[in-house]
Every structure is written in structure tokens, then in C-alpha cells.
Design a binder for these strands. Structure first.
Lengths: 107, 107
DNA sequence: TTGTTATATGCTAATATGTTCATATAATGA
DNA sequence: TCATTATATGAACATATTAGCATATAACAA
């Protein structure tokens, strides 16, 4: 009787793969530093240094978090010389982030 | 020049209060156990024991996580004798959860 | 009151997470 | 080649998180 599929597409419990992806993604959004980085990348792409200077976060911290976000395919980058320009890579997740920010602001 | 307000309502950086609420809420959604509980509460209210039995999670764990979710006002409960029936208490966050689950499934 | 069922709580151990420092790599220009 | 700028990485540390056990509380029935 477990995992009974409802008409509306919902299940009583989620399969482990979905659960993993969902929790990983929300976890990515659950850290202030990563939220600030993604929020900055909302409108424009940024070099690592731009992020470091705009948000006043140490370079290694930014780099670590960008790797984290890149592993989840939430950001991507392009190279120009020695400079890497990062931008967001998941419209849907960015939309979800925007919704949550709006939700938080309206309180 | 920091915290410049854009036409579209976005700021270069978020104020700390918003940042706190957003990260707290995403953190709540970033744990598999809490996701499973909220997903179960999507359609119907559940007693603690129903959650325990349906999801096969220990009672103390469920209780701890329900307290966590209640502190963030993501769930509420009503009492009936010795039984507490929990239900979700934030439509918007539930919608965001649904979106992320759908997003994860479509991959 | 005592027992029973349902739920909450305090504590602890294991694990995960985030930041920092120091250093490595990579591209480029002199 | 060497120096410089931009970024990444590894290790260490502090802190946060999670689950589980044991026990407490709360409501109710006998």
C-alpha cells in the first residue's frame, strides 16, 4: 500500500532519486552565501572577482561555493583569458529563488 | 553604490533579514525527512503516528522535525484527544516544494 | 489513582557543512 | 623564462545538523 500513486500525480512518498535531487537543490539554496551569489547572478554574469568585491566575501569562499553550485548545474561559466564569468544555469531554480525572496519580503 | 535598487525590484545584495528568512526556509526544505513529511501533508492532515507509520521514521525524529517545521510556521496542528493532527500552514512554500519536485521528476 | 496511548523533549554521538589559510594551477604579458 | 593576475584546491577547524535513546508530559479511560 506504500507509494500508492494518486490521480493528481502525487505519491504518498517520494522515490529516493527525486528526494535526493530535491533535497540537494534546496540545500544549495539554504545557505546565505550561496543565496547572495545566485541573487547577484540573477541579472548579469559576473567574474569571480566581481562577486568577491560586490559581496565582500573571501575569494576562496566564493570559489568553493561556485564549485558547489556548478556541481549541481545551478551555475555555469565561460572563460575569457584568466577571467571566468559565471552565470546561472537553471531558470527554474532561479525562479523558485525569486519567489522565495518575494515571499520573504512581503512579510 | 552598494544595494542599488533596480527597476525590477531586485537589489545587488539582499538585506540581512530577508536573507535570513529565505535561507532558513530553504534549509527547512533541504532535508529528506522534512521533505517527505511536507509531501505527505500536501493533500491531507496527518497525526504524528500516521506520519511515523507511513514514512517509517522513528517517532522522536518525526516529532523533532515537526517542531522544526512548526517554528518556521510551515506546519500547524490541531488537537483531538491525545492525537495531534498536523497540516501544512504555508501555501506558498508548499507550492515551491511542489515546483521543485516536479522539476526534479522531469529530469 | 493507575494504566494506556500519543506526543514531546533533553541529551548525546555521528556526520555534515562552511570558512579560512596556505598553496597550487592556469593564462597572459614582458 | 619570470612575474602577475585570476581562480581553484586541500587541509584543518569550528559549528551546525540529524537521528536515536531514554524519559517526560498530556489526555483520557477504567
Amino acid at each position: 500500500m506504500e507509494d500508492f500513486e494518486y490521480e493528481n500525480g502525487f505519491t504518498q512518498d517520494l522515490d529516493s532519486e527525486t528526494l535526493f535531487i530535491v533535497s540537494q537543490t534546496f540545500k544549495a539554496l539554504g545557505d546565505p552565501t550561496r543565496i547572495r551569489i545566485l541573487n547577484l547572478l540573477f541579472n548579469k554574469e559576473c567574474s569571480v572577482n566581481e562577486i568577491v568585491e560586490t559581496l565582500d566575501i573571501r575569494q576562496s569562499t566564493v570559489s568553493h561555493q561556485l564549485r558547489f553550485l556548478k556541481n549541481l548545474r545551478l551555475v555555469k561559466f565561460r572563460r575569457e583569458g584568466t577571467t571566468l564569468y559565471y552565470s546561472h544555469d537553471d531558470e527554474h531554480v532561479m525562479l523558485i529563488l525569486k519567489q522565495m525572496i518575494d515571499h520573504a519580503c512581503h512579510n
